[in-house]
Write a protein that binds this DNA or RNA. Structure first.
Lengths: 187, 187
DNA sequence: TTTAGTTTTTGATGAATGTCAAAAATGCCA
DNA sequence: TGGCATTTTTGACATTCATCAAAAACTAAA
């Protein structure tokens, strides 16, 4: 939990009071490898902070699992679309490693927004960072080829390669596992 | 300007006081076709609301212009990365039609955030919507083929096809103009 | 209208990547 | 330390899409 409070200082500084309120509202969740944080069709009512571990978001398409994002230490994770709209999730969130998370419900978070302008500001700023990150992934997906995407991954988030099976990574990069294997053999 | 105040009601409702403050802080900008709202290398210091008209964001890659987004009536537009980070923009924003915009500087907006929690909330909610929109485009880019992307465009944003030259649309969809032409001939 | 510029389409070809099937390598645990 | 399951690699072939070049269609101004 201390890690969470520490991490959010990167977004904006909170008063002691607001920090304490946060401290009070997050609950610890411990899950083991392969368990699910969320399954398709359920409404995602929580936002999580990943203190330790790794997980992936994926959905099913024509019988195949499409992994479209990963979460690691210090990431906020949720099924964003479902969390925001409160519609059923189209995706699953599955643990890749045993993990420690901190959870807050949407309702609790909304209540915190009402009480603390500074917490809503923090989230507004967090959104900006996550938006920029997604924008970059979008440009990669749309305008770079398989090799460039893999090299970008190597440079920008090498930890992914070290901790995740190649099948998931291929999916994450939007290429087939075989193609990824061939690209890797050329280095 | 009334259109702007009306539009933001879709995000959240503002007090009269906050609405008046907004009214006070936006300035009208009128530009004609082909003019630039922003050019590569400049820092983007403003957020714009597009009341009437159309524009595109594009960047240069290997001598080609890559159009990666369009703006139309009721869109908030800016070079998001540059506006948030205050680093030089990598993209250009060019008018596709003569347009009427309303502009607010980052500093002015920040001051409004400080004075009105409810305005920061409005922007937080707007970010959520824009994030979800981008997420959808990302999934399309990464996991759908050219034909599916074009059909998605037809269904979800047909107005784009009616108002934008096909060359820009092809780029927006991440395919060559020739391929787009062939896809279109198959309907 | 005519003409010049721009946009869109068509054709031929090649490169990048996907798919299916099988082999090889790796990991895990009894 | 085997043996089984999973993950990764390799090979053959098919498909999608890009590229280059040229023709056709469209647009707008003289």
């Amino acid at each position: 939990m201390q890690q969470l409070l520490n991490h959010i200082k990167n977004y904006s500084l909170l008063s002691d009071e607001a920090q304490y309120a946060l401290y009070d509202c997050f609950e610890q969740v411990v899950l083991s490898k392969n368990e699910y944080l969320l399954t398709e069709g359920k409404i995602c009512r929580h936002l999580y902070f990943l203190e330790q571990g790794a997980l992936r978001g994926f959905y099913n398409l024509d019988g195949k699992e499409i992994t479209h994002w990963f979460g690691f230490e210090k990431d906020f994770v949720t099924s964003f679309h479902s969390f925001i709209t409160q519609e059923p999730a189209v995706e699953n969130i599955q643990l890749l490693e045993g993990s420690i998370l901190w959870s807050i419900s949407k309702d609790t978070l909304s209540a915190l927004f009402n009480r603390y302008h500074e917490i809503e500001r923090l989230v507004r700023i967090a959104y900006e960072k996550y938006y920029i990150r997604l924008e970059e992934r979008f440009v990669n997906a749309q305008f770079k080829n398989a090799t460039e995407r893999y090299q970008g991954l190597l440079q920008q988030t090498p930890h992914i390669i070290e901790r995740v099976p190649l099948g998931h990574i291929a999916s994450y990069l939007g290429i087939s596992q075989e193609t990824l294997s061939r690209i890797r053999s050329r280095f």
